[in-house]
Simulated scan of single mutants.
Amino acid sequence: MPKPIRMSRRSWVAVWTVLCAAGLAATAGLNASSAPEPQPEKPVGTECAGRIADIEAQLAKAAEREDGGDGVLTFSRIRTGTEDDCRDALRDHFRGAR
């Protein structure tokens, strides 16, 4: 039975370094190739645009009144029975502000 090839610690470290670098490069390549394409902007209806403008005005007023306190600005939503409650438009518009 043949004797196994003996490797020094430096050789093992070099092999593991090369394998780790190859794995990181492959992972980075896969992540870059599977990035989702940006979605085209959806047109916002006039009712939703009015709601967004109203909320931004309320935020601007709250920012002016803020005097260093730990206040919380809340919004309540009342269902008016409309088909489009602008949930997606509001989410899309204010998601960029985070």
Rank of each mutant, 00 (worst) to 15 (best):
S34E: 04
I5H: 12
L73P: 07
A35L: 02
C86F: 00
F94K: 03
R9I: 02
A53G: 09
L19Y: 06
I5E: 13
A62H: 05
D85E: 12
M7S: 08
A97H: 05
P2H: 10
M7T: 14
A28G: 02
S8N: 01
I52Q: 01
A25P: 12
R95L: 04
C86G: 04
G96D: 03
P43G: 09
W12P: 00
G96E: 07
A57Y: 00
G68K: 05
E83V: 14
G69H: 13
K61D: 15
A21K: 13
V18E: 12
R79T: 06
D84F: 00
L90F: 00
K3F: 12
L19C: 12
R10Q: 02
A63G: 09
D85H: 03
F94P: 00
G81N: 14
I5T: 15
I78E: 11
G23A: 14
P43N: 10
S8Q: 01
S11W: 04
F94I: 07
A97K: 03
T27E: 02
S11M: 07
M7H: 15
E37A: 12
F94L: 03
E66S: 14
D67G: 15
D54M: 13
P36S: 07
T82K: 14
G50T: 13
F94W: 04
C48D: 06
R98L: 07
E37H: 08
A25R: 10
P38G: 10
D84E: 11
D70P: 08
D85C: 05
G45A: 13
R9C: 01
A21M: 14
P40R: 11
D84H: 05
A26K: 01
I52H: 01
R65M: 14
A63E: 03
R91N: 08
T80V: 13
A62I: 13
W16E: 15
P36E: 03
R79F: 04
P2R: 15
G71F: 07
P36Q: 07
K3N: 15
M7A: 14
D54W: 08
R51A: 02
A26V: 04
R79N: 12
L59G: 01
R77I: 12
G29H: 03
A97D: 08
C48M: 02
R77P: 01
V44D: 06
S76N: 09
G69K: 15
R87H: 05
L19P: 06
A57D: 06
G69P: 12
A89S: 08
L24P: 07
Q58G: 02
I78R: 11
K42P: 06
E66P: 06
M7K: 03
S11I: 12
D85L: 03
P40Q: 10
G81C: 14
T17K: 11
W12E: 02
T80I: 13
G45C: 11
L59K: 00
G45E: 06
A22V: 15
S33Y: 06
A35R: 09
C20F: 13
A89F: 02
R51S: 04
V18D: 11
R6S: 15
G69V: 15
R77K: 11
R87D: 09
A22F: 07
G29F: 00
D84Q: 10
L73T: 07
L59V: 05
E64G: 09
A57N: 10
A62R: 06
N31D: 05
A49K: 04
G71S: 11
